[in-house]
Design a binder for these strands. Sequence first.
DNA 1: CTGTTAGCGCGTTCAT
DNA 2: ATGAACGCGCTAACAG
Lengths: 366, 366
Amino acid sequence: MPAADRGQATGPPTISEVAAEAGVGRATAARTLGGYGYVSPELRERVLAAAEKLGYRANALARSMSTGVSHTLGVIVADIGNPFFAGVMRGISDTSRARGFDTIVLSTYEDLSQEIAATNVLIDKRVDGVIIASAAVRRSEVAHIRAAMDRGIPVVLVDRAVASLDLDSVVIDNRDAARAAVEMLISAGHRRIGFIWGPPAAEAPATRRELLAEASRNLWTDGERLRGYLDALDDARIPFDPQLVMVGRKTEGRATQEVARMLALPDRITAVFCTETEAVTGALRALRAAGLSYPRDVALIGFDDSAWAAVMEPPLTMIEQPVHQLGAKAAEVLLDILDGAEPRREMHTLHSRLIVRSSVAAPALP
Amino acid sequence: MPAADRGQATGPPTISEVAAEAGVGRATAARTLGGYGYVSPELRERVLAAAEKLGYRANALARSMSTGVSHTLGVIVADIGNPFFAGVMRGISDTSRARGFDTIVLSTYEDLSQEIAATNVLIDKRVDGVIIASAAVRRSEVAHIRAAMDRGIPVVLVDRAVASLDLDSVVIDNRDAARAAVEMLISAGHRRIGFIWGPPAAEAPATRRELLAEASRNLWTDGERLRGYLDALDDARIPFDPQLVMVGRKTEGRATQEVARMLALPDRITAVFCTETEAVTGALRALRAAGLSYPRDVALIGFDDSAWAAVMEPPLTMIEQPVHQLGAKAAEVLLDILDGAEPRREMHTLHSRLIVRSSVAAPALP
DNA sequence: CTGTTAGCGCGTTCAT
DNA sequence: ATGAACGCGCTAACAG
């Protein structure tokens, strides 16, 4: 039906062309097509018919230009290839679509410069609000987020809070989740528990104090999980051993190396707690390389449940995050602000769940 | 530095404000900020300083309005939560960013109505080109793609070709990949090989002819993989048994059911070939439920390699797709067209790789 | 009720 | 070399 003869028309049909085709003024066409104001049923029909005939679609850019709003949310995620963020993204897009908003996603791949670039793209495209599930941000590097805020663009953070920013943020109970997992390891009898992974320090901080300082300079999520680990250790009066927490670049390969190292210690680890999926697979590789198996030789608990974790033999005990809900909540908070609600500027905490399967057993007797 | 006093200014600073601040005409400001035309070094400096002072950022919408181009690619993927598509997406965004294009992604979650909506969003936002890695499209339902093409928006398909469309498409050698995998199973001695999953027919087609007809009415990728399976069977003169191909909704749960069914057959399967990750985990669940293990009781090969597949015990033999390259190539083809190259309207085929690990062994003697 | 008109912010002739 | 003026497609305030 589209592609009617529009004479010398070039490009997609405009509202003026529709008006001309229908023999009415631009405004009348605009009113019926825009769904506002009043138009007589008769003219209305003519306009609709003309639009249909020409295959008219409103130019969203032009509309945004004159209204000043784009009905679009910008989303910046750390890594869209990570199932965690993909799930959050789905929550965001489901609820924003339900409320009439499109969403455009940009992935930073954990790189600050890409995060800054992404922020600028969103500012330039005049999105109405921004959700950031990235914050490669080490607390101090938040100028780009400030820039968006200064322009009056509401920003909501997901997963990774940034204390210095005073924004609404939607997160999970990272500290409690980590503590619960480590407690389970402890009550199974473990005392030598590896922590994969910690902050990206160049060298392992010698003291607990330095470690925490380093952690709080970096990714919030990681710091919280580390705190949870320490909480559990403290409660059980197990002394903190800096050799048991991995620091440095967070890659699967390094996780493997570090677990191997901890396994080779004179007083080796009998359990590992992994704060991310790649840390889990890295740890698993180390176990295999060492000829060890879980839960017999080493107990294991990790973050981010998945179908794979359930089909492993034996199946893995994992922490499940409410990914969809995390995204949905963030979108709600943001859309409410766009609807005029006063920003609460607080932390919205959702709850994770420890899914107990079979990767934890008592440590083998020495 | 931004947020200088702009008097009663509301909203982000415009180019006119910058011009005023610098004490020059709008055009001069536009020229220096837009990087075209000629401007004296002196005025140039003043404009730059003013822009810096006001925190000026060009309004991409306004720019697109007057130039008619957005330097933005639209991408429609079937499911951004699927690591396969996430990888493709990364390939697309890496290469388009390198060539100065932003990309906006929309996920359809395999739903045609969402795919249509997504296409419209992209048309309305006036993206310069579209990459579709979805095509929930059952060959016949391509009106929305045609609509985009009719508007002069170049479209490139990835992963899932659509024969009726005559577009450039970037795909892998699905048929050969499947054939190679099944051949490996056959040469290990298997003759009863399950195929998970086939086309979404309501009932299992009784004949091979009907099955292929059904397949070609649906997702291209699935059809090709099925053909590869049949090719291998034919070459080995193994008769086709309709009971061994799963049809219907493609979910992990159904894969589990179907593998369980095939395992319960009088002449049960001794191997499974899975065309997707969820089919693999589904199959694995069925094996466990039946108290069977691989590769001893059942051999297994699946599509889409991942870190998990490598850490399974024993590790899984899988087909690895060049995901990043798939996306990169699609972006290249599209950007070349936008640069004026004549569309080749052909199928660009990349090669997958069978990663041999340990999930295939000879069938146990009956 | 409907048509005319003036912006929205930017790119781009066209004079100066 | 620079500035004034117009147009991109649409919304909205204003007459009529």
